Amino acid sequence: LQHLWTFEQIQQLIQKQILETPASDFLLEQIAEHIRFALIHPANENTTIEDVIPVLTIDRIAQYVASKEEHRKKIIKTIVNNPAFSALLTQLIQQTMHDYLDESMSKRVPGVGRFMKMGKSVLETVTDSNLDDTINHYLQKNILKLSQMSERVLNQHFDNDKLYHFQANIWHKVKSMPLSVLKNYVEVQDLSKTVGLGHEIWDHIRQTSYLKQQVHDGVYTWYVRNQERNFDLLLRDLNINESLIQHELTQLLVPVLQQLVTTGHLR
């Protein structure tokens, strides 16, 4: 490789053709069209999820995810200590207590439920205000304890064995579904918009110094590892071997070369 192509040449080519060149509108249209075609293909109706995804791979994934106990605990700790989780927990407890008291009072004292739901009732205003203050005061004092309790419960509920069986149960529920169910989660008619949004992200990141540095260092690392390898071995990495070139590529290229010769374009 190093006898024919330098690192700088490879880097400049990628820089010019990929990082500095925006994707064409036609390419974006084709991407959206191919995704749409794959989603609406009639074969999806008669092909189930387990027909295209091997169950042994799913099982290995489930075992792998379930085995990451320490990583899972860190994620749970991060979630329960987030202010958004505390706010959600507070609202959930408040609403649950309100619903419980309303239902309890309605069952024990017939007619009182309707009375307490009167929107502008002084009694309701005072009662709700006092109740909300009491609950809020309790939760503010104990939110840390409640978060720690939530963390313990989540860790117990998602231990290695339970998480594995949880994933297995999901697989058994979805494995017999046809692939056409994907249309329930992807808006086919909006593909041009969603593909466009994805392109906006790429179009921005390709121009950042961050990606330029990543590409530069990645290409350099690859080049250092491969600069003393023959092109024959590099092509084999792409499943291109001598047999393929002799038979498949020759049949493809000969008509192209003949066309170049007869039209005078090659000259």
Results as ranks from 00 to 15, higher is better:
L1R: 01
H3Y: 15
H3R: 14
W5K: 13
F7L: 15
F7V: 07
E8I: 14
Q9L: 13
I10F: 02
L13N: 14
I18A: 05
E20D: 14
T21I: 04
P22F: 12
P22D: 08
A23E: 12
S24T: 06
D25V: 14
D25K: 06
F26M: 07
L28C: 07
H41K: 11
P42D: 04
E45K: 10
N46Y: 06
T47D: 01
T47L: 07
T48G: 03
E50T: 03
E50K: 15
D51G: 04
V52Y: 00
I53N: 01
L56F: 13
I61Y: 07
Q63R: 15
E70I: 09
H71S: 10
K74Q: 11
I76M: 04
I76C: 02
I76L: 12
T78H: 06
T78G: 10
I79M: 10
V80T: 04
N81L: 09
N82C: 12
A84L: 08
Q91E: 15
I93K: 00
Q95L: 09
M97R: 05
Y100R: 13
L101E: 03
L101K: 06
L101W: 07
S104V: 05
K107T: 03
V109T: 04
P110V: 12
G111R: 08
G111N: 11
V112F: 08
G113D: 02
R114A: 15
M116K: 04
K117P: 00
M118I: 07
G119A: 13
K120E: 02
V122H: 15
L123S: 11
E124F: 03
D132M: 09
D133A: 15
T134D: 10
N136M: 06
H137S: 07
Y138N: 08
L139F: 14
L139K: 02
N142I: 05
K145N: 07
L146R: 05
S147V: 03
V153R: 07
V153L: 14
F158L: 10
D159T: 02
N160M: 13
K162W: 14
A168M: 09
N169I: 13
N169V: 13
N169Q: 09
I170D: 11
W171I: 04
H172A: 10
H172M: 05
H172K: 06
K173T: 06
K173M: 14
V174M: 09
V174I: 09
S176E: 13
M177Y: 15
M177K: 12
L179I: 06
L179S: 02
S180T: 12
V181Q: 03
L182G: 00
S192F: 01
K193T: 14
T194M: 11
T194K: 05
V195S: 00
G198A: 13
E200F: 03
I205N: 10
R206W: 00
Q207R: 11
Y210A: 09
Y210H: 07
L211E: 01
L211M: 14
K212L: 08
Q214F: 14
Q214G: 05
V219L: 09
Y220E: 04
W222V: 01
E228C: 04
F231T: 06
L234M: 13
D237A: 01
L238G: 02
I240A: 08
I240Y: 00
I240K: 00
N241C: 03
E242H: 08
L249F: 11
Q251Y: 13
L252T: 09
P255K: 01
P255W: 01
V256K: 07
Q258R: 12
L260R: 10
V261G: 00
G264D: 12
G264M: 05
L266A: 09
